[in-house]
C-alpha cells in the first residue's frame, strides 16, 4: 500500500503510521511483526505511588493546619516522623519488592529512630533506648539468624542486618554506659550480635568475607 500524503509505502497497516490517513479498505490486515498488545498493568506501583503522595500531602496539610491555626508544630512533628518511618519501612520496601534482608535492615535503622524521637519528645526517658530498642534489635537478630539457617547458609544477605545491629548496639551500649542508664538489655543484644558475627567468621569465613567484599566492592 502507498500513502499519497507522505509518499511512503506502508506495510501491515490500513492506516499510514506517519499521517494516520486510511489507505486501505481491507479490514483483515494483520501485523505479522508485532502482536496485538493486551497488557494488564502492574497494580503495586500505582497503589504505592498514590499512597506515597497521600502520605506526603496529608503530612504537609497537618503541618500547615498546625502552624496557621494552632501556631505550633508539636503534633505535626509526630506525624512527620511517623510518615518518614512508614515510607522507608513499608511503602518503599513494597514498591521495590525488597528482600527480607532489606526489610530487616530498614526496620533496624528507622524504627529505633522513631522510638528515640518519641522518647525525647514526650520526655519519658528510659523505656525506648534502654528497653524497646535493644529488644527490637534482639528480635530482628534472631529473625535474621533463623532465616539464614533456613536458607541453608546459602544466602548471606542477612549478614548485613546482623552487622548493622552489632554496630548500632555497640554505639548504644557506649552511650548508655556514659549516661549511667539501664544497660543489660543492650548488653544482651551487643553480645549476641557480635557473637553471631564472630561465629559466622569462624565457621563460614570465606563466604562472610566474600559477602563483605561484595558489599564494599573490593
Amino acid at each position: 500500500m502507498f500513502c499519497e500524503n507522505c509518499k511512503v509505502k506502508v506495510k501491515h497497516s490500513k492506516n499510514c503510521p506517519l499521517c494516520g490517513k486510511n489507505i486501505s479498505e481491507n479490514e483483515n490486515i494483520t501485523n505479522e511483526s508485532f502482536p496485538v498488545y493486551n497488557i494488564v498493568p502492574d497494580k503495586v506501583e500505582p497503589v504505592c505511588s498514590v499512597l506515597t503522595k497521600l502520605l506526603i500531602w496529608s503530612t504537609i496539610l497537618c503541618i500547615i493546619v498546625d502552624l496557621f491555626i494552632f501556631h505550633t508544630i508539636n503534633i505535626s512533628l509526630y506525624i512527620l516522623c511517623s510518615a518518614i518511618c512508614v515510607y522507608f519501612v513499608i511503602l518503599r520496601n513494597i514498591k521495590l519488592r525488597a528482600s527480607f534482608a532489606k526489610i530487616i535492615t530498614s526496620i533496624v535503622f528507622f524504627v529505633p529512630l522513631l522510638i528515640l524521637f518519641l522518647e525525647l519528645k514526650t520526655q519519658s526517658w528510659g523505656w525506648g533506648i534502654c528497653l524497646s530498642v535493644p529488644f527490637l534489635w534482639l528480635g530482628l537478630l534472631l529473625c535474621s539468624i533463623i532465616l539464614m539457617i533456613a536458607h541453608g547458609w546459602v544466602d548471606f544477605d542477612m549478614f548485613r542486618p546482623i552487622l548493622l545491629i552489632s554496630i548500632l548496639s555497640t554505639i548504644s551500649l557506649i552511650f548508655l554506659m556514659c549516661f549511667n542508664q539501664l544497660t543489660w538489655p543492650t548488653l544482651v543484644t551487643f553480645l549476641s550480635s557480635w557473637s553471631s558475627v564472630c561465629l559466622m567468621f569462624m565457621f563460614r569465613f570465606k563466604r562472610t568475607v566474600r559477602s563483605l567484599k561484595k558489599d564494599l566492592r573490593v
Binding site: 509518499k7 511512503v8 506502508v10 506495510k11 506517519l18
Partner: peptide, 17 residues
C-alpha cells in the same frame, strides 16, 4: 521520512500501533 523521500529515497514504513 518526507525529507528522505524528497531526496529520492524510497521508504517503506511499518508500525507496532
Amino acid at each position: 521520512f518526507s525529507k528522505l523521500v524528497d531526496f529520492g529515497i524510497d521508504i517503506t514504513v511499518e508500525t507496532n500501533m
